[in-house]
Design a protein around this nucleic acid. Structure first.
Length: 575
DNA sequence: GCCGTTTTCGGCCCGACTGTTTTCAGTCG
């Protein structure tokens, strides 16, 4: 099976961990981490570049040595350097690094001085009171280790964006009532629009930090205060969500907001750029020598570097700074740009509302058109439509279109893509529709080769407009199925059909890097709610966030077009 | 190990908090 960017990134991360435990040059360690991060954000599969003979050292953060390791991994599936490391440092030590409070130095001390190699041995040593006597350790650290070994599996917990939204809004409102507070804003990955977040970063401006910290600690949802200093505090809520709060002076808000919005990769690049210009950039501002020259707004921070404002969703350290410098930042799509929703369900399959109710709800949200795309018969659990019921639905939609003004209802279906790539309704029926959405709902575990061939064949059917939730992932529940997405995207271009960015909070599928690839290949993406009730439109904002992280502009999104512009594009996919 | 508008050598982002110290290293984000 092809080696994916994620596989290579995981190897580089592991090598960084092991090198760090070995006490290697920290900058060398950093180079591995940077390369891993860049690979994850690349959007193209590096294995393809290798087979195309491309010069990998042209990629950011990849030099000759790492390029050779990538080639070795693509061609042999292994990296000898990692195997060598395994002979020097037990691979099991990596797990110890993931316990909060244990870093490379302490893990190394545990290994060299106590012979601890595994989590089990660590727990034994801690219980026996052998940790507290190591240099740099004490009773507190020993106690911490004991507590965290048990909770270790929870530490990696992430939350879906939509689930964090309520916590964020409630906390912001609560903190605004603290004395002397002027601003409360959410920063971090939430502000960047990420589909899942590991913790919530809040930024508060206030005259006296003390009152804010006090109120924060007293929030009724707080289960545990992890740390608390004069300007910074971390708590865990009862839901398990970690919240970091930082209080800054109002004149520092811009610098702090930029700093705490991240991403880490973006910040590092920004500070390096500053350094090259003799500037020091931190959360308090931009400084030339001792003099502060910017920091009140984010714009002012960017301006000192000669850059325009970079939207938070782009701050992933994956080319946005170069784009800003060269004046080719995208003008990102906004919620207001959407004119329609091309994937909706009704009571006829597994939805909760009638066609008319769905249409009126969409009209209320200002949409100009919607497509009704109930499930087809193969999806029994969703009470999918057979040919007869679909034909009756078509007639009903035609009647409704005569009666309801101000919104147009398109006739569609979400057909099942069968294991052999065929669709589960005949062409005679599909030909009566305005669009056909195809989706994989079964046999998720096919090999990459078979799954890709299955989807390509479905796209080649006479009536096929949009590939729904293209990777099949369910955030934090189910991995994407194995599929060659670059190939599918190229095939969509050749075939003239489209990919969906499904805006359900638990899907958000296409992911950001594949959105970017679709844009590069010139394949418009449809941002659809996949709604099952009258609240369907509430999903769209999450899809927009994802699209923005994928660099999509208005023109890259299929359903920003007025109906007159959309119809001919859909018609081309329909035979 | 990467990188270059000071540089092919000598740099490499920056500060808060904790626990261990008694002035600071380690960890974290």
């Amino acid at each position: 099976m092809a080696v994916r960017n994620e596989d290579i990134a995981a190897v580089f991360d592991e090598m960084a961990d092991l090198l760090e435990i070995e006490g290697a040059n920290p900058f060398r360690v950093r180079a591995y981490r940077t390369a891993a991060r860049n690979l994850r954000g690349l959007g193209r599969e590096v294995a393809e570049l290798v087979s195309g003979g491309a010069d990998l050292s042209a990629l950011p953060g990849i030099g000759k040595a790492l390029a050779a390791k990538i080639r070795e991994m693509v061609q042999t599936g292994n990296v000898r350097a990692l195997e060598r490391l395994h002979q020097e440092v037990p691979a099991s030590l990596e797990a110890l690094l993931h316990i909060p409070g244990l870093g490379p130095k302490r893990v190394r001390a545990l290994y060299e001085q106590l012979g601890v190699e595994t989590l089990g041995q660590l727990e034994q040593a801690a219980r026996a009171g052998r940790l507290r006597n190591l240099a740099g350790f004490g009773p507190k650290t020993e106690q911490n280790v004991l507590e965290l070994i048990g909770a270790h599996s929870d530490q990696q917990r992430r939350f879906r964006r939509a689930g964090v939204q309520a916590h964020a809004e409630a906390l912001v409102a609560y903190l605004k009532q603290a004395e002397g507070v002027t601003e409360v804003v959410v920063a971090g990955s939430y502000r960047r629009g990420k589909e899942t977040v590991g913790d919530l970063d809040l930024l508060v401006t206030a005259a006296q930090p003390g009152a804010v910290m006090e109120r924060f600690g007293a929030y009724e949802e707080v289960a545990e205060v992890v740390s608390r200093g004069p300007t910074r505090s971390t708590v865990i809520l009862r839901s398990g969500l970690q919240v970091d709060l930082r209080v800054v002076a109002p004149e520092n808000l811009g610098a702090a907001l930029h700093y705490f919005t991240g991403s880490k990769a973006h910040n590092i690049q920004i500070r390096r750029l500053g350094q090259q210009r003799g500037l020091k950039i931190n959360e308090y501002g931009v400084f030339r020598d001792e003099r502060r020259i910017a920091g009140e707004t984010e714009e002012s921070v960017f301006r000192t570097l000669g850059l325009p404002f970079i939207p938070p969703e782009l701050r992933q350290g994956s080319g946005e700074i170069e784009a800003a410098r060269e004046g080719r930042l995208p003008e990102l799509v906004t919620l207001a740009d959407l004119r329609g929703d091309l994937h909706l369900h009704t009571r006829d399959s597994d939805g909760n509302a009638t066609i008319e109710e769905m249409a009126l709800a969409a009209k209320k949200h200002g949409l100009e058109y919607i497509a009704i795309t109930d499930h087809s018969w193969r999806l029994r659990i969703a009470h999918g439509l057979d040919a007869g019921r679909l034909l009756r639905q078509i007639e009903e939609i035609e009647r409704l279109n005569e009666r309801i003004k101000g919104i147009r209802i398109l006739k569609g279906i979400e057909v099942d893509i069968l294991e052999d790539g065929m669709l589960d309704l005949p062409d005679e029926v599909l030909s009566r529709l305005d669009l056909v959405i195809g989706a994989v709902h079964s046999r998720f575990r096919l090999s990459e080769k078979k799954q890709t061939a299955r989807i390509l064949r479905a796209m080649d059917q006479r009536y096929f407009s949009i590939l729904a939730h293209p990777s099949g992932r369910l955030l934090l529940e189910r991995e994407a199925y194995q599929v060659d997405m670059p190939r599918i995207i190229r095939h969509a271009r050749e075939r003239g059909c489209f990919l969906e960015l499904n805006a359900q909070p638990k899907r958000l599928d296409l992911n950001d890097s594949h959105c970017r690839l679709a844009k590069e290949e010139g394949v418009p993406v449809a941002i659809n709610s996949d709604g099952h009730n009258e609240n369907a439109c509430a999903n769209l904002v999450h899809g927009i966030g994802q699209a923005r992280r994928g660099w999509l502009e208005k023109g890259d999104v299929l359903n920003t077009r007025p109906l007159g512009g959309l119809r001919p594009l859909l018609a081309k996919t329909m035979g």
